[in-house]
């Protein structure tokens, strides 16, 4: 899997599964990091995140839903 990005999608609690998110967004299994899964960001909004390929992210991200960068993060120390 090449470059990956994050996208977000709103789902009702009863339909909050990765399969349902993929179906709604028209995503194939080869475009999604299924091991990452569907991650709940804000329960109060029913907002979830998925990790998908850059191409898929550009194609399916809903308005305001990305694609968002997924940069590396590093420990802040010891100072070099």
């Amino acid at each position: 899997m090449g470059g990956m990005v994050l996208i977000t999608v709103e789902l009702p609690p009863a339909e909050a599964t990765l399969e349902e998110a993929m179906r709604r967004l028209g995503l194939g299994e080869d475009e999604v990091d299924t091991a990452y899964g569907l991650v709940l960001l804000a329960p109060e909004q029913g907002l979830y995140a998925l990790r998908v390929t850059e191409d898929a992210g550009r194609r399916v991200a809903p308005p305001g839903g990305g694609p968002f960068s997924d940069p590396p993060i590093e420990p802040y120390g010891p100072p070099r």
């Binding site: 991650v39 960001l41 995140a49 990790r51 997924d70 590396p72 993060i73 590093e74």
Partner: peptide, 21 residues
Amino acid sequence: ILLSRRQGGTVMDGLLSDAVA
């Protein structure tokens, strides 16, 4: 979260998506 999930790297880092999860 900073234990790398990237393959082949020697730098100890993670991805922001790990922090989201």
